[in-house]
Simulated scan of single mutants.
Amino acid sequence: MSSRTRLSFDVKLNKLGETINIQISDPSGLQADNLALATWGSSEVLANVLHRLPVDFSNTGVLQHVLGVLELGAGTGLVGLSAACIWRTNATLTDLPPLLPAIDANIALNKDLLSRHDALATLGMLDWSQPECIESGSSSGTVLKEGGHGDSIMNVKRMRARVIVAADTVYSEEHPELLVNAVKARLDSKPEARLIMCYPLRIGYLDHIRDLWERLEDAGLVCIQEGREEIDDSWDEDTPYEWCVWRWQAVGERPQSGT
Rank of each mutant, 00 (worst) to 15 (best):
A83E: 09
R210Q: 11
R215T: 03
Y171W: 14
W40P: 14
Q225W: 15
G137N: 01
S82I: 00
T259S: 15
F9A: 05
I203C: 10
H51L: 04
A161V: 01
I134P: 08
I103A: 02
P131A: 01
R88A: 11
I20H: 06
W235D: 08
A102P: 02
H51N: 08
P176T: 04
L114K: 05
N48I: 00
E173M: 14
T122D: 12
S234L: 08
T259Y: 12
T5Y: 13
I22K: 04
W87T: 00
L178Y: 03
V170H: 02
A102H: 07
F57H: 11
Q256E: 13
L113K: 04
L221S: 03
S152T: 11
K12D: 10
I86E: 06
L37I: 03
G148F: 06
A166C: 08
I209H: 15
G258K: 12
Q130M: 14
N155I: 02
E174R: 14
H65W: 09
P191N: 04
S2F: 09
P255T: 00
Q31L: 02
V180S: 04
T122S: 15
P240H: 00
R160Q: 12
A84K: 06
T239F: 07
S152V: 06
W213K: 15
T239H: 12
L187E: 01
Y205H: 15
S140T: 05
D232C: 07
A84V: 01
E242S: 12
A119T: 03
N155G: 06
A250V: 15
D10Y: 13
Q64M: 10
G77T: 01
Q225Y: 15
L72F: 03
S140D: 14
S2Y: 08
M125C: 13
I224N: 10
G252W: 01
G147I: 02
S82V: 02
